[in-house]
Every structure is written in C-alpha cells, then in structure tokens.
Design a protein around this nucleic acid. Structure first.
Lengths: 198, 198
DNA sequence: GTCTATAGGTGGATAGAC
DNA sequence: GTCTATCCACCTATAGAC
C-alpha cells in the first residue's frame, strides 16, 4: 500500500480534471480511497492546499523530464532529446500535461490570490525559454537555418503542443503507438522546412 | 436590453469556463443578471439543458465562420480563407473556441449520457475533414506538394490549434494585433516547407 | 415570466473521541 | 492518524403566488 498522502494527490488530480476545481471534493476523494474526508486534513491543510500540491507535483515531474535531455552532447542531440522528453512526459503523465498546459484561461485562478496559476505561467515561460535556447544553439551549429530563434521556437512549440493536446483530448482515434508515429512524421515534416537548403 | 435567454447563455459560458461544469450555478447566473435563479427555468429546462445550449451555440457559430470560407473561387483561396475564418473565430469568439477545442479530456462528459460531448467530437472530426478536403484540392491544383493529405492536414491543424490555444491560455504576452502577425508569420514558415520546391 | 418559499442534496471545515 | 458528529454554506429543482 503506497503512502496515503500520494494516493490522495493522484485521486485529486483525476477529480480535478473531470470536473474542474469545483468538482474536486474532499468527501469524494475520501470515498474513493476508502477513508473519511476528514482524514485528508492530516495530510493537506485544506482543499486549496491539496490543489496547489497537485499542480506543484505536475510542474516538478515535468521539470525532471526536461532536465534529463540536457545531457545530450551536441545541440542537435539536446534538441532532439528535448522533443522526446516532451513527448514522453505527455504520454506517460498525460494528466499532468493537462494540468500544466491545457487548463482553460481562468480555470482555477479564482482570484483567490493563491498564486499558483502564476507559477504555472512561469513554468510555461521557462519551458519556452528552454526551447529557444535549444533552437538558438542549433542555428549556430548549422543544424537549423539561421532565423529569429524566438519566432521559430513559437512555430515549433505550437506544432508540438497542438499535436499533443489534440491527442490527449481524444479528438483523434489513435493508440499510443500510432500517435508516436504521427508525432515523429509530423515533426519531421515541419523540421524539413526549417533546416538549411541542401 | 437584449433577450434574457441570450444573456443567460452568455453568462453561463463565462461561469463554465471559469470553474467547469460544477462551477456553473443557476443561482450565480441569476444573480449576475439581476433575476432570481428560478427565472432561468422558464428559458432552459434545467442546468444540463443550459450547458448543452452553450455548447450547441458554440458549434453553430463556428460552423457559420467556416462555411463562409467556401465562397472562395480557387483551392488556394478556399484554403486561405478557411485559415482566416479559423483565426477570426478564435479571436472574436475565444470563449466558444475554448468550449469546442480546449476542454480537458473528460470535462463535462460526466458519463450522464447527455450526448453532447459526442456532438463536440463529431464537430472536431467534421472540421478536420473540411481541412483535409481543402488540402487535397490544393495538392491537386499544385499549390501544395503532393503527399498524404490526411497526414499533412494533421500537421497544419496541430500548428494552428497550438498557436491559438497557447494564445488564448494567455501563455504569451501578446495583444491581438501582435498575435495576428505571429499567426501569419508562423503559418507562412510552416507552409513554406509544404509547397512545391521552386 | 418572474417571484418567494421550501425540500432535499452535497460540500468545506472543525471538535473531540479513540 | 483516523474516525464520527456537527455546523453552516451553497446547490438544483419544484410549488404556488402574483
């Protein structure tokens, strides 16, 4: 039996994604786990604290995926490993992906000053800067055609996020293997236009 | 003073996007509009009916945007007008865009057999087929390089949806004019790699 | 068509027993 | 640490007056 604290986090994530912040209920979490609702308060101060921990965990896990790709030896390798890390995170931790990148505009902000939506925004920006850095060094190494690295990064991120979010929203009937193939082919199609002319 | 029925729909849309299906409350809608909650039941059977009407309206409006682009005389024109229609819909009816294309995986399905999430899925598929048709005829006319029209369409939709959804989630600090420019430039960058070699 | 009153349900959070 | 009991707030929906 894993730690109750962790199981609460997992269950809260599911409820949050099903019905939004208002759909996450301490009682329901408790029922799902076979404990009373009040037991949760020994592990999390209140509902807001629980929700913040869900989002914080998502951000932490995503960071660990992306960070690993920095071990690549060349700009190309770091770029490609970064892309794979992003894909792996999306497929292995799809629910965390939804929390970080697919929440509707106001979703959960609630104006309560909890400050976590701000952390999510910061996370997105840091992720984007990571991509810009990879693109920049690939332009210097000649792997990508020289251009505005920021603008090219936007194109790449848009394409990547678009693929992943449409897949996670189940708007394509594809299994995971099929999606991995689509992801690679589509990315290759895009990158083909971004590399130096032969 | 516009029709109360319409104002209810608008208000319900806002509440839905802020807090999800559970965050939409008849009482709150009523308060926002200065009427009692029960007044709403003269216009909508119940909460589910109200929510279904919100989504149905979104789908209807989107269809009207897209349909207009069919008036183009050539494949290129229909393709480009379709892209503009999509962008205009996203910018002029951003909240409807979120309802149709940005709802998290389970959001609102609720297993209640209401059948509307199914209609949304159908709408996405119809939209995608519309794009495939445009791409197909552009390949035949020579505007696009011949290739698997379905696969190329996925790349294009992913890029387009990615741009729009990141913008609507306010993950880029851009005003509308800036985003329109970004959209055009980024699309041009992508299309450049999809057109026949000179 | 819109109101008030009301029934019946769900939810957050605390107090205090064990 | 987890429970039961409890309080109060908010929700959907209906009945019936106006």
């Amino acid at each position: 039996m894993t730690d109750l604290r962790e199981r609460i986090l997992e269950c809260a994530l599911d409820l949050y994604l099903e019905d939004g912040p208002k759909g996450l209920s301490m009682r329901h979490v408790g029922e799902s786990l076979g404990v009373s609702a009040t037991a949760i308060y020994r592990h999390y101060r209140n509902k807001e604290d629980l929700l913040n921990n869900v989002m914080g965990e998502a951000v932490k896990v995503f960071g660990s995926y992306l960070f690993a790709s920095l071990s690549g030896k060349t700009p190309e390798e770091r770029f490609n490993r970064g892309g794979e890390a992003y894909l792996n995170f999306a497929l292995e931790k799809g629910k965390y992906y939804e929390v970080i990148f697919m929440a509707p505009s106001q979703f959960g902000a609630a104006g309560d000053g909890s400050g976590l939506p701000e952390a999510l925004r910061a996370q997105s920006m840091a992720t984007f800067q990571f991509l810009v850095d990879r693109v920049q060094e690939c332009m210097e190494s000649g792997y990508l055609r020289k251009a505005d690295a920021q603008a090219v990064s936007m194109t790449i991120w848009a394409h990547t996020h678009g693929l992943v979010s449409i897949y996670l929203a189940k708007k394509w009937s594809l299994d995971e293997a099929g999606f991995r193939r689509l992801f690679r082919e589509s990315t290759e199609r895009l990158m083909h236009g971004l590399r130096p002319a032969p």
